[in-house]
Design a protein around this nucleic acid. Structure first.
Lengths: 125, 125
DNA sequence: TCGAACCCTCACATTGATGTGAAGGTCAAA
DNA sequence: TTTGACCTTCACATCAATGTGAGGGTTCGA
């Protein structure tokens, strides 16, 4: 598919699809006329990228961890270097901390909303 | 305490402490000589801010949700407007999605590492 | 064959979170 | 009383993600 369709199906501006390519996150084929040609699977991939970006990971990191993330748990690893493994360990850690922080604060907000909106029951204190 | 101590205790450059103030996330007192004077409790608060920033939330949002986040579950709510509640609901949602995305990918990375490092047991498939 | 709707590259603008440095005030200890 | 370690404000720089527009090709249907 061409960039327009992928853009529509992922809700991502073409500008960003080109940017992700520039950052090495995706590498579409090229048609004879120079147009980018995207594989079907890139729909999921782009959504995954956007999710990770939204979660605060920079493209630099996403690029490193993407090859290890295949939904079908059919992990095709690209012969990892020790530095790469170290990066992954480190990022694993950071992600866990992020998750904890987000979860803690989300729960607090949820609790707050429960109380404030007096959800049919004024929060048995 | 003055900015230097808070900076050390939170591992945050003074520049950023001033920035957070400028963004309305913290509002230190001022000494007679013009120096900022930070309350003890701001140590935790700053770390919370950093955690949320690192998790991908912008200061604009953090500013809104911070008043609802008091660890002691002694939520002192500042008479919320409907828009504010809407913001919170929305952000609650975004945070949940972020958490899900991060958790999913973290688990995938963890699984990958387990396999690749052949953790004394080559991952019973 | 023309126009609309795509696509291309290039490049500059913006926004948020930061870094960094200049020019100067405060204060404690030597 | 001077030096050095703090602090102040102001301002410009940077980096990543994203917006936007110019200038120009391709394709397809009216």
């Amino acid at each position: 598919m061409r960039i327009g369709e992928l853009s529509e199906r992922t809700g991502t501006p073409p500008r960003l699809l080109r940017y992700y390519e520039e950052q090495g996150l995706i590498t579409p084929e090229r048609c004879a006329n120079g147009y980018r040609s995207y594989d079907e699977r890139l729909v999921d991939r782009v959504q995954q990228i956007r999710g990770l970006l939204d979660a605060g990971l920079p493209t630099r990191i996403i690029k490193q961890i993407l090859p290890c993330l295949d939904k079908s748990s059919t992990i095709h690893f690209p012969d990892p270097t020790p530095e790469m493994l170290a990066t992954l360990e480190l990022e694993l850690d950071r992600m866990t901390r992020r998750i904890d922080c987000l979860a803690r604060n989300r729960d607090a907000i949820a609790a707050y909303l429960d109380v404030v909106r007096g959800d049919r029951r004024p929060a048995r204190n």
